[in-house]
Design a protein around this nucleic acid. Structure first.
Lengths: 132, 132, 132, 132
DNA sequence: GTGGTCTAGACCACG
DNA sequence: GTGGTCTAGACCACC
């Protein structure tokens, strides 16, 4: 479920945050589902529990999960979370686009790329999710 | 010409690199134009000369400028530079798009945003370049 | 009567203590009334009996209840309990006030808020006790 | 300036956050003033640098300070910060008051306490800030 | 068993 | 020198 990429230059805890966020937004983690415990996940990924702890803490701060001493960490109600996530994605896109139009890149090239991205997604779906 | 923003979390040397790149891509710096000397620029921005040095070194490594001992640093031929810059922009866009399709955002919303970006650019052009 | 809120970050045993205290102070539990048995309450709330046990122990330590082996736990005389509760409330208020004067907040604003709180109480009373 | 109280049961990093917040709100730390460096303050308080780091990170997240690698941590512009702080204080007071009126404590007792708090403040001022 | 805090010490990137 | 990340290992409170 949760993986880390050592090639990725971003800190591990940030990768975990993104990963969990994604799983929540995609609905793989449902509200009140328990997350893997700090220690378990740390062992699984063979990293330090503190790093997981930090990721979970940030997720709690952002209101995506809640943790209870002695019981574990759980997914929060989501509705607004997903919407906010979408907004952020589009804001990022807008930023990238601003640079692109500033650089004078052809609109057709952009549209082609967008189509390609959506195309590849459909391909993956048809192949089935059995991979990994 | 070259400014730094201390509130910006990116390292200063990176801000300088980006700034110079932008000036080259936009054609403000023409091939074989001299860049400000390390010491001059350092004083102007009141930062450590090492920081400028590092930025120039990186720019040379990337092939955008060349340095001549005792004379200074100069802009290289720019054709390939611009092309590479475009490639990078598109790579960034692709990354943003990947997250977007993953989040299941509607294709129409994306296309609309793209159109909007190109639309606003044309508007700005017609208004004249006084903005920025 | 006694409920727990898993979203509440405070430990369960503490929530139970507070809840019982409140019921005593409010007069719902009269002196020598029996409290629900540890096992009953544990089942009712579907939590570990140890947790109830701990809450009752703490309540006994504070002198609010007394336990008789083989018979159960009972409410103690309440006069002093209420008084102590009042003291604690005022101590909390004093702490909040300390921060307020430190922050330099206007005295009038505070007095206004105090009046408002007492005002709203009278309102509620007159409306009847159906609330809560 | 910044002190920690080992009697206080709250975590050290939280005490530091509150302390810095207070100093900013009170205007002792002005915008763009540098905070003590992570290591310096850690030594001064003889605690681990990580603990300071954590406090500063949280303060940055809350928008009260900004940190730059290799340069240090600095106070942010404040206006809205102070206002928000005041609001929070009053919300806390309101919460304490709600419990007080619920417990049926006399209004006069409350007003007396409020007066006392403001009185003690004036006393301190007149004594002069030379203490400590 | 769970999460939360802290320490000691390391390494990196930056100026 | 600065801040940022991570590890290893400890202790606490809670269930």
């Amino acid at each position: 479920m949760i993986v880390i990429d050592y090639k990725d230059r971003r800190p591990i805890y940030e990768q975990i945050i993104d990963r969990v966020k994604m799983l929540i937004v995609k609905g793989v983690y449902q509200p009140d589902d328990p997350l893997p415990s700090v220690r378990t996940l740390a062992m699984e990924l063979s990293i330090n529990p503190n790093t997981i702890q930090r990721a979970y803490q940030e997720l709690e701060r952002q209101g995506l999960i809640y943790s209870v001493k002695g019981r574990g960490s759980f997914v929060n109600g989501t509705e607004s979370v997903i919407e906010e996530h979408h907004k952020k994605m589009l804001a990022d896109l807008k930023e990238a686009m601003a640079k692109i139009v500033e650089a004078g890149i052809d609109k057709q090239a952009v549209l082609k790329l967008v189509e390609a991205c959506y195309g590849s997604m459909e391909l993956k779906k048809n192949e089935g999710g059995a991979s990994e």
